[in-house]
Design a protein around this nucleic acid. Structure first.
Length: 858
RNA sequence: GCCGAAGUGGCGGAAUUGGUAGACGCGCUGGACUCAAAAUCCAGUUUGGCUCAAACCAAGUGGGGGUUCGAGUCCCCCCUUCGGCACCA
């Protein structure tokens, strides 16, 4: 007979809901744990088997913690803005809100079907105006902040304005600077432009991937896809909202050292931030008084800088290009603009064109040609380099191709065969640096550069500011109005939320603007204060915005005065354990850390970092070991699995498959395996008639069984704490296998076993607990305890080795003396056969483990 | 190319302050129950050799070297797979 999982699971899910079993109460006197899942994007396809993996892991952990008396916060919600719903709306004209609601309903049903112990009263939905009101509120906070380098933190823009009014730009590196009086005389527009250079959210004209055919800007990773479909995508400078995440580069790097995160994720973030130390050096341009500033990590090689390169987009290109070269340069720039950054990288053959001008190498005082080439990127450093072909692969390649001079300035080893030499060695051809190795040469040249006012020491980051605007409808509107006098006006907090307008048709606007531009009533406004006409910002926020702070809203989801009550924030933050996919290793996790730090600086949160411990669940592959996909036909539907084997089996199997963070293939046989285990559990406890099995009696346990029990309690608890669920389940299986052999089963221990099983398979556990005459849910029953002494075996098997090879074994009392072990070994018949006639050179005895007799050949 | 993770039976995986490799599950084989099947239960199951069988012997944790009484575990080199980055000066 199969155990009636469908009835049981329904029954207990209803029970938990009716009794609000998992509703979390803020109780600052109790120890807390905040356990967070990455909230899902509710797609039309519904849940796939990958989702429940992480969710089950956190659920087991939470259920365990509750039984340990911990106050647990474990919420769920929806990252529901996003492109799929909007695309669907374009095709069907069904409002994304409708689609989103339907998808959320499906996801909710499926998640509830798995018996996950979320506090549903805290559910959040990023598309709910009550939620995105606060996303917009945070945007305004960021917009109205600037990063004060002196204090290394974000501060209100009002503080900066006051400072300008009182002291002008003194103390802030600003070119050109101004006095307080000059500031006051500036027009509002001029003042705004200056402030924009400080704000953490600002509008910039940056090159983006513009696709005329689609009427939208594409993300870098989307470009290839649309090109293949025949669309033209071009790099075009456009006005976009940016977030000044680069101001936080150093802190994002520094603070990550204290996080308990997967090494690979920390590494990815580190690489993404890409800190490098070096110097900025000014190269005067011959003949016109301008200078080109370059960034280099190898200032020690400056004597080998035989030419310079500017990025095609560099502002000085127009200034330095000579009349003769004008047409060729113009043509080259056009071609470069058509290539994405990705394509520039793909093109291994370096291209470039001579500008016609020369610069003076400040070290050698020699004239060097200035080239324009797209292997230099405008977005990094200064967009210009000093080319040192002797010590740089790219420069060498370029120099070879265009016949530019190559001078080595580091002596390669005598057996060196390569072209550029990147390793360490004494400087050569470098005047006063000659003989110095790289580190010392760097120190000396930077001193020389700084004392001669030719440049400065400098740290650069690969990290770039965050492109924050999207030409989309289904996102949070940016609460900014562009006034006719050219200034921008943020909405007042009291005007939030700024709701999305209703649209009749969900089509691209036909211009570079989002579909919001079509909602003319919404877009066109008159500023009440000034009477100026204005247009609302028509870009919306990226999907990342809502997910940047949702963990804070769970803490206080219904608060309409603040985004999160400070006392509650102090109690619950930080998130103690965060589980979600590795695909978010950089973007989501970096953006969220960034916003969190801004909120920290402004005093809205009390922790420097939001997520203390992070774990990525591995991908669940199809039964054929391939990625699950519709086209492969290897997708497993959780609904079917639950219908056939029950939610408890599904949960148990996903945890039993292997380590949480590993990728592993689905196996229907495997599900059947854990399903059989649950059936055995049921049969051990319950008779055919549904009564408690008569073999379960109030009898004392045998010493062996009691020992196994204590070992099991210990192992299951320790494994849950370490999130090693697969081995915890193994141990429970071992316990059950032994239990089944007993004619009389000690009730007390079996009851405790039900509690061990409860976090993993909560439905069957509740039902058994109930049958064992407990009237209340076991959700808060005390977790079983064990006695360390009782886990210890009184005998051990000791191995006898000869020359490291196992030749015999013996069971002896625990802690048998080493001398006795040695005697046993030497008298063992099997050992004797290998030892007799040989000379024993050494004997190693490890108590409770082994005896190793080392013999020499004769 | 660079960074990171990982390679253990037919399969998923256990086992690391260096000390019995293969726990647990799947599959497979044989048996019990059954008219039969399903379900369930019991036994076996790394490979090879020798065996009716046991015992025994040999090999064995991607490959090759090394350290050690002893290596899946530590060190060096290489190969493969997966994930990320990709002209970042």
């Amino acid at each position: 007979m199969k155990y009636p999982f469908l009835d049981i699971e329904k029954k207990w899910q209803d029970y938990w809901e009716r009794h609000q079993t998992f509703k979390t109460v803020d109780n600052p006197s109790k120890p807390k744990r905040y356990i967070l899942d990455m909230f899902p994007y509710p797609s039309g396809a519904g849940l796939h088997v990958g989702h429940p993996e992480g969710y089950t892991a956190t659920d087991i952990y939470c259920r365990y913690l509750r039984m340990k008396g911990i106050n647990v916060l474990h919420p769920i919600g929806w990252d529901a803005f996003g492109l799929p719903a909007e695309r669907y709306a374009m095709q069907t004209n069904i409002h994304p809100r409708i689609t989103t609601e339907q998808n959320i309903a499906t996801f909710t049903r499926q998640i509830k079907m798995l018996g996950l112990s979320y506090d549903w009263s805290r559910e959040v939905d990023t598309t709910d105006p009550k939620y995105y009101r606060w996303t917009q509120w945070i945007f305004l906070k960021i917009y109205n902040s600037w990063y004060d380098l002196r204090q290394q933190k974000a501060r209100s823009i009002d503080a900066l304005i006051r400072e300008f009014e009182q002291k002008g730009s003194e103390g802030l590196s600003l070119e050109p600077g101004f006095t307080a009086e000059q500031w006051r005389k500036k027009s509002k527009k001029e003042q705004q432009d200056i402030l924009a250079d400080f704000r953490l959210a600002y509008v910039a004209e940056i090159p983006v991937n513009w696709c005329e055919g689609l009427g939208t800007v594409l993300a870098n990773e989307e470009v290839e896809e649309w090109r293949e479909k025949g669309y033209t995508v071009e790099r075009r400078p456009m006005k976009q909202w940016m977030m000044r995440i680069t101001a936080y580069a150093e802190r994002l790097l520094e603070d990550s050292k204290e996080l308990d995160w997967p090494l690979s994720t920390l590494d990815q973030q580190k690489n993404w931030i890409g800190r490098s130390e070096g110097a900025e050096i000014h190269f005067p341009i011959k003949g016109n008084g301008e200078t080109v500033t370059v960034f280099t990590t190898r200032p020690d090689t400056i004597f080998g800088a035989t030419y310079m390169v500017l990025a095609p987009e560099h502002p000085l290109v127009n200034v330095i290009t000579t009349q003769q070269q004008k047409n060729a340069v113009e043509e080259y720039r056009k071609q470069a603009a058509l290539k994405s950054e990705f394509e520039r990288g793909i093109d291994k053959d370096k291209s470039g064109i001579f500008s016609g001008s020369y610069a003076i190498n400040p070290a050698t005082k020699k004239e060097i040609p200035i080239w324009i080439a797209d292997y230099v990127l405008m977005g990094y450093g200064t967009g210009a380099i000093m080319a040192v072909p002797g010590q740089d692969e790219r420069d060498w390649e370029f120099a070879e191709r265009f016949g530019l001079p190559i001078i080595r300035t580091v002596q390669p080893p005598s057996d060196f065969k390569g072209k550029p030499y990147l390793g360490d060695g004494p400087a050569i051809n470098s005047d006063f640096l000659n003989g110095l190795y790289i580190d010392k040469a760097k120190v000396k040249i930077i001193e020389w550069v700084e004392s001669n006012k030719l440049g400065t020491r400098k740290i650069n980051y690969k990290l770039r500011d965050w492109l924050f605007s999207r030409q989309r409808y289904w996102g949070e509107p940016v609460p900014i109005i562009h006034l006719e006098d050219g200034t921008m006006k943020p909405l007042d907090e009291s005007e939030l939320p700024l709701l999305l307008p209703e649209l009749e048709k969900f089509q691209p606007s036909g211009t570079t603007e989002s579909p919001l531009a079509l909602a003319t009533d919404w877009v066109n406004v008159v500023d009440k204060q000034t009477g100026l006409k204005g247009r609302r910002e028509t870009n919306t926020m990226p999907q990342w915005a809502g997910s940047c702070w949702y963990y804070l809203r769970y803490i206080d989801p219904d608060n309409d005065r603040v985004l999160c009550d400070p006392a509650k924030e102090k109690y619950w933050m930080p998130v103690d354990l965060y589980i979600g996919g590795a695909e978010h290793a950089v973007l989501h996790l970096m953006y969220a850390r960034f916003w969190h730090k801004v909120l920290y600086d402004l005093g809205y949160v009390t922790t420097k970092e939001p997520f203390m411990k992070l774990l990525h669940q591995g991908t669940i592959l199809g039964e054929d070991n391939q990625k699950m996909s519709k086209s492969r036909g290897n997708v497993v539907n959780p609904d079917e699995v639950v219908l056939e084997y029950g939610a408890d089996s599904m949960r148990l199997f996903e945890m039993f498959m292997g380590p949480l963070e590993d990728s592993k293939p689905w196996s229907t046989r495997g599900v059947e395996g854990v399903y059989r285990f649950l059936n055995r559990v049921w049969r051990v406890f319950v008779t055919e008639e549904g009564a408690i099995d008569p073999s379960i009696q109030d009898v004392p346990a045998s010493p062996e069984f009691e020992r196994l029990y204590h070992q099991t309690v210990k192992k299951v608890g320790e494994d849950i704490e370490a999130l090693r669920f697969n081995t915890a389940i193994s141990q429970m299986m071992i316990f059950l296998n032994e239990t089944m052999k007993l004619e009389k089963k000690p009730r007390a221990l079996l009851e405790q076993f039900v509690l061990l099983l409860a976090p993993f398979a909560p439905h069957i556990a509740e039902e058994l607990w109930n049958k064992l005459e407990h009237s209340e849910s076991l959700a808060y029953a005390p977790w079983p305890s064990y006695t360390a002494e009782k886990t210890i075996e009184d005998t051990v098997e000791v191995v006898f080795q000869v020359n490291g090879k196992v030749r015999s074994k013996a069971v002896v009392a625990l802690n048998t003396a080493e001398g006795d072990l040695e005697d046993l070994a030497k008298n063992d018949t099997h050992v004797k056969r290998h030892v007799d006639g040989k000379r024993i050179t050494r004997t190693i005895v490890v108590k409770n483990k082994l005896v190793n007799i080392v013999i020499s050949p004769n």
